[in-house]
């Protein structure tokens, strides 16, 4: 089966190389975790996959017509922001049906009146419940207390088989519990 994403000897960075070389292949149904120490270039690797960082060597190959959804470490939190969670999901093209009850209640409220953790989970749901076939989650456990971290695990467990998830985290235990594969990332040297 054709991979959705393939990295071949990728070395990526900004003004100079930060991470790599990295090689991996991601197919439908995969949840791959990228793990490494702070500053090893996990987020830079993500940015390279999303076409936002500079590729110094190697290749990033996306399946033709592949659509991406991407959740960043910190969601855009404006104050005041009179946009509800449901409206956020609407503009992301994400289906609100199936939201866990705690998130469904938060989704009815303005984003500036819910907690950082609830906002984070709604952003993750916006990425997971849309039409994108490759979902990039950057440090999704940030801002989450143990209860919400468990909820995030449930959201990932209810994954679709036609989609792949690439997940960056510095929490090894979370990756081991919820990913089908974990890859250790090394900084470029």
């Amino acid at each position: 089966m054709e991979p959705l994403l393939a990295l071949d000897g990728l070395i990526a960075g900004w003004s100079q190389p930060v991470v790599g070389p990295v090689s991996l292949s991601l197919g439908a149904g995969d949840i791959v975790g990228l793990w490494g120490a702070n500053g090893c270039g996990k987020s830079t690797l993500f940015a390279a996959v999303a076409g936002q960082a500079r590729v110094f060597a190697g290749r990033v190959e996306r399946a033709p017509g592949l659509t991406l959804a991407m959740q960043t470490q910190v969601p855009v939190r404006l104050a005041p922001l009179p946009v509800t969670g449901r409206e956020l999901l609407g503009v992301a093209g994400a289906d609100a049906a199936g939201l866990p009850p705690t998130l469904a209640a938060a989704a009815a409220q303005r984003l500036d009146r819910i907690s950082g953790g609830q906002h984070q989970l709604l952003s993750i749901w916006a990425a997971l419940a849309g039409a994108a076939r490759l979902v990039l989650l950057d440090e999704p456990t940030n801002n989450l207390d143990p209860l919400h971290t468990a909820l995030l695990g449930d959201l990932l467990a209810a994954r679709r088989q036609d989609r792949a998830v690439l997940l960056v985290s510095h929490e090894r235990a979370f990756l081991d519990a919820h990913c089908t594969r974990v890859l250790e990332i090394q900084p470029w040297c």
């Binding site: 999303a50 609407g90 503009v91 990425a127």
Partner: peptide, 18 residues
């Protein structure tokens, strides 16, 4: 409107998809 909202609240989605 939905495009402007998404560009403001989820800028990474649009950037990642070009």
């Amino acid at each position: 409107m939905p495009r402007l909202l998404r560009a403001r609240l989820l800028p990474q989605h649009d950037a990642a998809n070009g």
